[in-house]
């Protein structure tokens, strides 16, 4: 390569780099401040905020890569395109394939990006506790106070007050989610109402087939499996409405298996929960004791096990519906 060609090459790279840096910085800033705050899942919970930030960081990293490709492509198409008069290409062929400097730069930059993403990924998993999915029956982490609240719920001695972890049980059934509140006598409701600025311990299970509890504005998604208690934690941060959908194809009315939920103030939540506890008291008395899972026993027309009015406890499971055949 002649000194003149080398000088020309440096000039090209400098121009490309300047255009790339300027466009990338402007695009990243515009995205971060104008688009970023509106990116799903929003900012209703700590989990949602973390997920939104993760998405925005990934996008801010990816955008310069995309812009780099476009700028290079545009520059090459404009400056280095083959001339119709048969003039030789100024760059290309053997010289381009063996350009070690370009190869080293490309591999170094992409390696650094991948390593940074891996570091951030570990940070998100360890510090932010993952993405808000179900943590399984034995979570490797839990927010402060969650274990105490869940233990109290199982023992039947739970009573929620503002500032403490609220345990909410999500029960999937073909084809509706219902919600139990052990901190208020274990009443069950088809409404999901949550207090603001509160850590929520979702305990998700199913009475029949596999469902999946997905409250995407809360950035919480946990499979609802029969006889499995799938725990998911989050902290509410913003008042508003959200939508719960089943995201596991679960039969004929799967498409109808959704409901609205609301995050309300702590005082409004307390008023709603206490009034619902009172209104539902007669029916709550006939529900099984609060348990992590409920045996989706053969009952009704399919099993013919008619009840005798006696529930046989399956600690920590309990029977919804008919008596267990084994008891």
């Amino acid at each position: 390569m002649s000194p003149q060609n080398s000088k020309s090459e440096v000039g090209h790279l400098r121009r490309i780099a300047v255009v790339w840096v300027v466009v990338s910085v402007v695009a990243d800033l515009l995205f971060w401040f104008l688009v970023g705050p509106h990116v799903p899942p929003g900012r209703m919970t700590e989990t949602a905020i973390n997920n939104q930030r993760t998405f925005n960081i990934l996008f801010v990293i990816a955008l310069p890569v995309l812009i780099g490709v476009w700028v290079y492509l545009g520059y090459a198409a404009t400056v280095w395109s083959a001339k119709r008069d048969g003039a030789p290409e100024s760059v290309g062929g053997e010289a381009a394939r063996t350009n070690q400097k370009a190869q080293v730069w490309w591999m170094s930059v992409t390696s650094v990006i991948v390593i940074l993403l891996a570091v951030y990924g570990f940070y998100a998993v360890v510090v932010e506790h993952g993405s808000g999915g179900g943590e399984g029956p034995n979570p490797v982490w839990s927010p402060e106070g969650a274990i105490q609240a869940e233990t109290a719920a199982l023992g039947g001695g739970s009573s929620w007050t503002p500032g403490h972890v609220l345990v909410v049980q999500v029960i999937g059934q073909q084809w509706k989610f219902t919600y139990r509140y052990p901190g208020f006598g274990g009443f069950e409701s088809d409404q999901l109402i949550l207090p603001n600025h509160t850590t929520i311990a979702f305990n998700v299970t199913s009475l029949d087939v596999i469902h999946s509890f997905w409250a995407y504005q809360l950035s919480v998604k946990a499979d609802a499996n029969p006889q499995v208690n799938n725990v998911a934690y989050t902290e509410t941060k913003q008042l508003g409405s959200f939508v719960v959908r089943c995201s596991e194809l679960c039969g004929l009315w799967h498409g109808s298996m959704f409901n609205d939920g609301r995050i309300v103030s702590q005082s409004d939540f307390t008023n709603w929960a206490t009034s619902t506890q009172t209104a539902n008291a007669a029916n709550t008395a006939h529900l099984p004791p609060f348990a992590w899972t409920y045996v989706p026993d053969a009952n009704g027309a399919s099993g013919g096990f008619y009840p005798d009015g006696t529930f046989t406890p399956y600690s920590p499971s309990e029977i919804y519906g008919a008596k267990s055949p084994a008891s």
């Binding site: 029949d208 004929l252 399919s302």
Partner: peptide, 23 residues
Amino acid sequence: SWQCFVPCGLGYLFGNGGPMSTQ
């Protein structure tokens, strides 16, 4: 949509097949 919440599909798994799963 409306539905029955009694697993009344006689002879089907958990009573939710057959008439419970047919429009």
